[in-house]
Amino acid sequence: MADISKDILQKIKKDEVRPYPKQYFLLKRSVIWTVFGLSILFGSIACAVAIFQLRYAEWDLYKHLSHRPLEFALLVIPFFWLIFLLGFTGFAFYNFRRTEQGYRYRTLWVILGSIAISVIGGGIFYATGLSERLETAFEHNVPFYRDLQERKQRVCMSPGRGLLAGKIVEIISEQKMQIEDLQGNIWVIDINDTIWKGRLIPAQNLKIKIIGEMKGQNRFVANEIRPWKGCRGQGRNRTRLLQLECDS
């Protein structure tokens, strides 16, 4: 057999083949780790909003709805954000596998590890209030997301079972106000003995949920009035959220 190594060396010399510089590999590794890090970061943000939505899901409304427990759970679970989390986890996994030693770890552990880091990161973001701001920003800037959330809120239209949702049209007196429900019907609401939850201040155009009892055609006695988005945001973003709800 001819000396194949000698032939190859000659070809390398003739074609002036040169090794790629160290910086090329450094850059390649950095890009992979950066994309991995960003995937975990975005996964954490998605997880933060999912935690936020689960934390403020109004599980107690279940008794006012005609849905089965599973249907109700499906409505409350923040699939949108969980799909994001899974997508970014997949992306993180793909990039981790492309790192120098990433292939040595089992798929299941890499995926579970990525999810665990995202959940911890999500918990930190949630604690900082970022998730609340992000969700609000999404609702106001992403029509698809707004429609999705509104579709979820429409289940609150169940006056026969004591649940009504809509927008305050007029505050007639301290005992009465008028609302337009999600289907465009006008209701007169008795607010004489009503508990206003979530530090709500009645105002025109404010979106609310009402728990109470239907008393005839388009008349409703409110036992409890809650903010449109549930009793969330008792903290720093509360005023801004209410303002945004009134504006929209």
């Binding site: 083949v17 090794p19 790629y20």
Partner: peptide, 9 residues
Amino acid sequence: IKVYRNLNG
């Protein structure tokens, strides 16, 4: 040739 090109990696 690939080995040579990638020696630094």
